[in-house]
Structure formats: C-alpha cells, structure tokens
Simulated scan of single mutants.
Amino acid sequence: MNDRQLLRYSRQIMLPAFGIEGQERLRRARVLVVGLGGLGSPVAMYLAAAGVGRLVLADFDAVDLSNLQRQILHTTERIGTPKAQSARTTLAALNPEVELVLVKRSLTIDTLPGLLTDVDLVVDCCDNFDTRFAVNAACVAACKPLVSGAAIRLEGQVATFSGQPGGPCYQCLFPRDGSADETCAAHGVLAPVPGIIGSIQATEAIKVLTGLGQPLFGRLLVLDAAVMQWRQIRLVADPACPVCALVTVTPERQAEPGQRE
C-alpha cells in the first residue's frame, strides 16, 4: 500500500487483530451486494469506505421518491436513475480506489452462478423471498459465505452463513411457502432500522473476509427497535433441507474468502 492508502485506512490498520494484513485481504476481496435499497445502501457504502477491492452491485430497479427516506445511497436529483448507476456515483466519490461492477437486472437461480464465480462473499440486501432463496441456493452450491439481512417496521434481523457443508443455510431457517414474505412497501419501515441492520451486515462481511472476530455463523440476531432490544437465536442445519442437506466437501470448495493471488 502507498502512503495515501495507509492514511485512508489507518484507523482500521491500527486495530491489533486487523493490521496491514487485514487491509490487504480486503483489497483483494470481491463482494456481491444484492439489492441497493435500505440495507444495501449502508452495506455498499461501508464496504467501499473500508477498502474492499471490488464491489459487484446488483439491482434492477430505479430510484423512486419513496426510497429516499431510508436509501441513503441515492439523492433527490437521481429519481428515475437506475439504482446501480446511482450507487456507482455515490461510491466512486466516497472511495475512487474501489472497482465497481454494475448488474442492472433481476437475479435468478440461472443467472447467479455466473456472478458467484468471481466473488468471495455475497451480502443479501434484497426485499423479496424469491431472490433470497435463489441467492441462498447459489451460495450453497458455490460454497460462498452469505450475509443475510432483513428489516421491516421497527424490526430487523441478521445472520451469516458460512457456505460450508454441515452448517445451516437460509432455507433451514425459513420455509419456502411464502408465509414470511412481507415487504416495506406493504408494511412500512422506520428510516434508521435498515441502516442499523445494513451496518451489521457490512461488519459481518468484513469479519468473514479478514478473519476478524467471530462471525454470526449459526446464529440469528434479531432487533426490536421499538424497545431497542436484541435477541440471539441459535441456528442448526435442517437434515431435510432441500438445498444444503446433500452438499459434500470437495477440495476446490474450500477456498478461503479474500485469499486470491
């Protein structure tokens, strides 16, 4: 790293468990952010600010006036602009050293594998269960870590899935029957709540990529912002899960995040 980079990231580098090695791991890391709304805004901004080398930014939607109450990547003058393009403008100004790749289309179980080939980790910030299940299935198949978040009303939740066989996946936690499919458009959300959850998602992503601390593997963190209380729920793998139950370990599936040459 040059002197300017050392200064930019100095407050992270001085952390004893992080150091220059942690910063270099972030610089080599490639992260897919799915959704650039209320959750994706703080996720993308913090990962860019922290120095992740490449961010793949996926969102098919355009900026709407109703987004601006919570989606801090976007601004009033960008109403009607594709969110991915708006995000690039904000993030390039925040940290021009980060490589930004835009994906302006819906993600499906057919298109996701190609995107996951060249990333180390996925952060799911979308607002619909079809995409969440597709992202989860693709991460399990590719053995990629997944940081999942959700926020609605005054509630939020975060979980981190290792992508390794034997651990739980997103579908172990939520059945694919549509029973939990709620959206902010239908039920509302308090502006800072997605910011809280998204900030935790960004923290989890950095921890996984650098080996810092203990990620939320096998744990679900649940926020009730009305009384500002957190609960932690232990997650276990479902032996009957149609996504992860039959996955086995192979040598090529054990690449460590952020360890690209």
Rank of each mutant, 00 (worst) to 15 (best):
residue 133 F to V: 04
residue 163 G to S: 02
residue 151 A to G: 06
residue 242 P to F: 05
residue 71 Q to M: 04
residue 207 K to P: 03
residue 18 F to K: 10
residue 29 A to P: 08
residue 17 A to C: 06
residue 70 R to H: 06
residue 77 E to H: 15
residue 54 R to I: 04
residue 193 V to N: 01
residue 174 F to V: 15
residue 38 G to K: 02
residue 228 M to I: 12
residue 92 A to V: 03
residue 166 G to L: 08
residue 66 S to C: 11
residue 224 D to E: 10
residue 182 E to K: 11
residue 32 L to F: 09
residue 48 A to Q: 00
residue 12 Q to R: 10
residue 34 V to D: 02
residue 204 E to P: 09
residue 143 C to H: 15
residue 151 A to M: 09
residue 70 R to W: 05
residue 25 R to F: 10
residue 259 Q to N: 12
residue 135 V to K: 00
residue 30 R to D: 02
residue 109 I to D: 09
residue 85 Q to T: 15
residue 181 D to W: 05
residue 101 V to C: 06
residue 230 W to L: 15
residue 124 D to C: 07
residue 252 E to N: 12
residue 168 P to E: 00
residue 217 F to E: 03
residue 64 D to R: 07
residue 92 A to C: 12
residue 116 L to M: 02
residue 119 V to I: 14
residue 124 D to P: 04
residue 159 A to G: 11
residue 60 F to A: 13
residue 106 S to H: 06
residue 76 T to Q: 15
residue 5 Q to R: 15
residue 174 F to P: 05
residue 121 L to H: 06
residue 15 L to K: 08
residue 214 Q to C: 13
residue 191 A to H: 03
residue 246 L to T: 15
residue 133 F to Q: 03
residue 148 S to Y: 12
residue 207 K to C: 03
residue 76 T to I: 12
residue 56 V to R: 11
residue 150 A to T: 13
residue 42 P to L: 04
residue 185 A to N: 10
residue 234 R to I: 11
residue 129 F to H: 00
residue 225 A to Y: 08
residue 203 T to E: 09
residue 237 A to F: 08
residue 40 G to A: 08
residue 224 D to W: 10
residue 163 G to N: 07
residue 255 A to I: 11
residue 61 D to A: 14
residue 173 L to S: 11
residue 247 V to I: 14
residue 183 T to P: 10
residue 147 V to M: 10
residue 142 A to H: 03
residue 172 C to M: 05
residue 160 T to D: 03
residue 221 L to V: 12
residue 89 T to K: 11
residue 98 V to R: 02
residue 37 G to N: 07
residue 225 A to W: 07
residue 240 A to S: 13
residue 40 G to Q: 05
residue 116 L to G: 07
residue 215 P to W: 06
residue 203 T to H: 07
residue 4 R to Y: 11
residue 5 Q to N: 14
residue 210 T to Q: 02
residue 163 G to W: 05
residue 133 F to A: 00
residue 7 L to N: 09
residue 6 L to N: 10
residue 89 T to G: 04
residue 31 V to S: 06
residue 120 D to T: 10
residue 100 L to I: 08
residue 253 R to N: 14
residue 244 C to W: 06
residue 146 L to V: 05
residue 16 P to F: 13
residue 81 T to M: 15
residue 4 R to A: 15
residue 195 G to T: 04
residue 241 C to I: 06
residue 163 G to L: 03
residue 53 G to K: 06
residue 159 A to I: 00
residue 222 V to W: 08
residue 116 L to D: 07
residue 131 T to E: 09
residue 207 K to H: 04
residue 66 S to D: 10
residue 145 P to C: 08
residue 130 D to R: 07
residue 15 L to E: 00
residue 251 P to Y: 11
residue 237 A to S: 14
residue 173 L to N: 09
residue 44 A to Q: 01
residue 47 L to K: 08
residue 215 P to A: 00
residue 133 F to K: 01
residue 82 P to I: 13
residue 245 A to C: 05
residue 175 P to W: 02
residue 112 L to S: 01
residue 75 T to P: 02
residue 27 R to Y: 09
residue 139 C to Y: 04
residue 175 P to G: 06
residue 53 G to P: 09
residue 259 Q to M: 14
residue 41 S to H: 04
residue 131 T to Y: 02
residue 228 M to W: 14
residue 165 P to R: 12
residue 259 Q to V: 00
residue 256 E to H: 12
residue 253 R to L: 14
residue 256 E to K: 13
residue 159 A to R: 03
residue 151 A to V: 08
residue 158 V to L: 06
residue 70 R to L: 01
residue 261 E to Y: 12
residue 212 L to K: 10
